[in-house]
Design a protein around this nucleic acid. Structure first.
Lengths: 338, 338
DNA sequence: TTGTATGCGTTATCAG
DNA sequence: CTGATAACGCATACAA
């Protein structure tokens, strides 16, 4: 049949009443008689009526849609965050539009523009590694669409952000390394313009300080998060003398590359080297020789809290929303028995 | 400032011309003068005009939005399929709404209903493992919204479906096992009401037949795809005498559980057992003791083709769209040198 | 070549 | 308690 969907007009006609009465009846408006309401609802049911959301969106100037932009759906940290975000969004009757920037600023701008013309009510974003300029996001804010960052945020940018407490996590990792006798603890960090990289570094530095270990710049590297760069960095570290006996890694995905590189290119040294990453990927449980540990983050909760923050900004635009920084604790997750 | 976004009205007022002229000018309508077009576009630019998509959607009775429902974003097969789907959707100027049924029929129905009231123009779906009844999807079709299945489809349902050619893949896997001397080849399948399970079985059966190996029902199991079920099934197989020396597995995620179970509970037998799954997960490249092989599927291409099919149905509703079954070849991907 | 008028489905305001 | 009507932004048939 593929009939056109029924509208309130059809209901009105069927009952010989006005559309406004129908509209009110369907919304249980107080000054509509109980009998009328019932009759309207019965006909609505019979005609298989379902409100035309596009009309409502248009009329209300609200889409009840939130955007979330992440680097890639292939990283479980982000997909889990999406799930947490969707939970609070759904609970508040909002839809979620997901976009992947694929670590490209260009793509990210396109996505923001598409989402803006789709009239999203708010945006949650983990910026691409290329994103060195926040114009496209400031523009959104100017247009009255709140923006919340998560996981990644440049130093000195005044947006709200929800992320992991990577500072204390790094310090804890150093504690563990030191307690296991390590002195040459290398650190491979992520992009240095991110606050979340800087905080990892500070935690690492203060952790070493606490144990009276001098900071050795040679042991600190920065990866741009692709495999060939990761291999390069490991080679550089392993050719130091003495080479590090432990490494703190920006992310578990980086740790995977580090492990592969060590296994293939430094097989004799590898067994003595201990590694700690961030993320605690479940796949390590399938490894026969897992890394020492990983700092387990809370992506689901990060998504939830970011969503709550965003909804709050949307639902109370009149309030003054100072940028907030929220960080959720990480826990050391051991893959080996100690 | 958070000014209201500019509309064509504003542009018209600024130039003292009519809205229809503006509308046409912006669309490069043939019978608008070149000078007028330029002036309109200049003002549009200056006012930072961006069309109100909600109004267009409402007016055109089309949302230019496609839905895709998958079991979970945590399975890379599906996220890659989403990417392929997004590619063709984006190229055709369509947006994509992603939903996860989390293997729940209940949730799937909710998603379909939400997407329907959001007036999606078409739906691509990999049904949940609980989905034994297609009412909610038939309803969509009745409402004129085309539906295409992918990866999973019940036997005997007349929907279009794009999936892997699992039949030949299974036969190839059996060939490889036999060439390596295996005679006791177990098979752990997925839900038996899916065509994609039945086809795997047929390929397995015909593969054995070709090599004159009798089908042994004891060697055939069905998993309901959760870890504890997977462990149970492996235990049952390993307690046969003689136990199988090779196993063909419905999916790589199942293979991961099989490997863990074998490693933990059958450590002496494990090294002699060879495994082949479906999917060729990249994570196996990080394993020191990877499985024998996996049947590499083409999720990206599956997403693309399903998207193309769907767009075709949307853009040419007048044509008669008989349900099509498309299957894309798998290739044997070896993790070990043979 | 440009302008005028209409309608898409809904809600809200106001009048009865 | 119910009804008539305007308005949201845009595209388009039709008029000028």
């Amino acid at each position: 049949m593929t009939n056109k969907p029924a509208t309130i007009k059809d209901i009105a006609k069927a009952l010989n009443i006005s559309v406004s009465t129908v509209s009110k009846a369907l919304h249980d408006h107080p000054n509509i008689g109980a009998i009328t309401k019932e009759r309207v609802k019965a006909v609505a049911e019979k005609l298989n009526y379902s409100p035309n959301i596009t009309a409502i969106q248009f009329k209300q100037q609200k889409t009840f849609t939130l955007g979330i932009i992440i680097p890639t759906l292939l990283d479980h940290f982000y997909t889990i965050a999406v799930n947490g975000f969707e939970k609070v969004a759904t609970a508040a009757k909002y839809n979620v539009l997901i976009g992947q920037n694929q670590e490209s600023l260009q793509r990210e701008k396109e996505l923001v523009s598409i989402m803006q013309s789709n009239r999203i009510d708010g945006l949650l974003i983990a910026i691409s590694k290329e994103t060195n300029n926040m114009e496209h996001l400031r523009k959104l804010e100017m247009a009255g669409i709140p923006v919340v960052f998560f996981a990644r945020k440049p130093i000195n940018e005044t947006f709200s952000c929800v992320s992991s407490d990577v500072y204390h996590a790094a310090a804890n990792a150093v504690d563990l390394f030191v307690s296991r006798g390590h002195k040459k603890i290398a650190f491979i960090n992520g992009p240095s313009h991110w606050a979340t990289s800087r905080d990892r570094f500070l935690g690492y530095r203060d952790g070493l300080l606490k144990h009276n270990i001098a900071l050795d710049k040679q042991l600190i590297e920065e990866s741009d998060l692709d495999t060939s760069s990761n291999y390069q960095v490991v080679r550089r570290l392993m050719h130091l003398s003495p080479a590090p006996t432990a490494m703190l890694l920006f992310k578990d995905y980086l740790m995977l590359d580090v492990m592969s590189c060590l296994r293939k290119e430094f097989p004799t040294e590898y067994p003595a080297i201990e590694l700690i990453g961030y993320g605690a990927l479940p796949l390590f449980s399938h490894f026969e020789r897992p890394p020492l540990a990983s700092l387990k983050e809370q992506p689901y909760e990060i998504g939830e809290q970011a969503g709550t923050l965003l909804l709050n900004m949307i639902q109370h635009p009149e309030r003054d929303h100072k940028p907030q920084l929220i960080s959720l604790p990480c826990t050391l997750h051991y893959f080996k028995e100690l």
